[in-house]
Computed example of a mutant assay.
Amino acid sequence: MQTSDHDGVLVVAVSGELDMISVDKVGTALFEHLAKQPDGLVVELTVDFMGSSALSMLLELYARAQRAKVGFAIVATAVAAARPLMASALTQVLPVAQSVEEAVKSIQEERKPG
């Protein structure tokens, strides 16, 4: 996992495999980032494999972000991430963006006072 700050929006790039073995470690790190209350959290999935446990973790992360009023988006350009999200219809539930830039801009627009 690599993190970068985009004007207060934290982008976390997740690579490798998100399976039953790795999802707890990745999820714990993402929940810790969220607990720091950034303006927004973007999860960029550049994974080679993503199992159902990862989908559950992303749903929980989104729910926690909503409760904490932290902007949230997922970028899933890798086929291994996009396919399970689409197959499970979670693209209808989770905020999915086409690029990190789009996700950051969307969160920043959401956060503007007015």
Rank of each mutant, 00 (worst) to 15 (best):
L94W: 04
P95M: 05
T28F: 00
D39M: 10
L58Y: 07
V93Q: 05
G8C: 11
Q108M: 09
M20K: 03
E32T: 09
L85H: 12
V75I: 06
L59R: 07
M1I: 12
A82G: 09
V104S: 04
A73F: 08
L61M: 15
V47P: 09
L90C: 12
M86G: 08
A13S: 14
F31H: 09
S53G: 14
V96W: 02
R64C: 09
A103W: 04
V79I: 03
A65D: 15
V26E: 01
S15I: 07
S106T: 11
T46Y: 08
A68Y: 13
E17Q: 06
E110P: 04
F72W: 04
E60C: 12
L61S: 15
V14A: 02
E101S: 07
T91K: 03
A29T: 15
L58W: 06
Q2T: 14
L58S: 09
L61G: 15
D24W: 04
Q98W: 05
Y62V: 05
V47E: 06
S88K: 06
G71V: 08
L90Q: 12
A82H: 06
G114W: 02
V70Q: 01
F49S: 07
V93R: 04
A80M: 00
K36V: 02
V42E: 10
F72R: 04
A63D: 14
Q92L: 07
Q2G: 10
E17P: 02
A68F: 13
A97W: 06
D19W: 09
V79N: 07
T91L: 00
V96T: 04
E110F: 00
V42S: 07
L85Q: 12
Q2N: 14
P95V: 09
T28Y: 02
A81V: 10
G27I: 11
V70N: 00
D48S: 10
S106H: 04
V93C: 03
K69R: 13
Q37A: 08
T91H: 07
L85R: 11
V79F: 07
A68I: 12
F72E: 04
G51E: 10
D24K: 03
E60H: 12
S4D: 01
T77V: 02
L45V: 10
S56T: 15
P84S: 08
V26Q: 02
Q108P: 01
S88T: 09
A80G: 10
A68K: 15
V12E: 07
E110A: 08
M50P: 01
A82S: 12
E110C: 06
G8P: 05
Q37H: 09
V11D: 11
G27V: 10
V93N: 01
L94C: 05
D7L: 14
A68M: 15
V23Y: 11
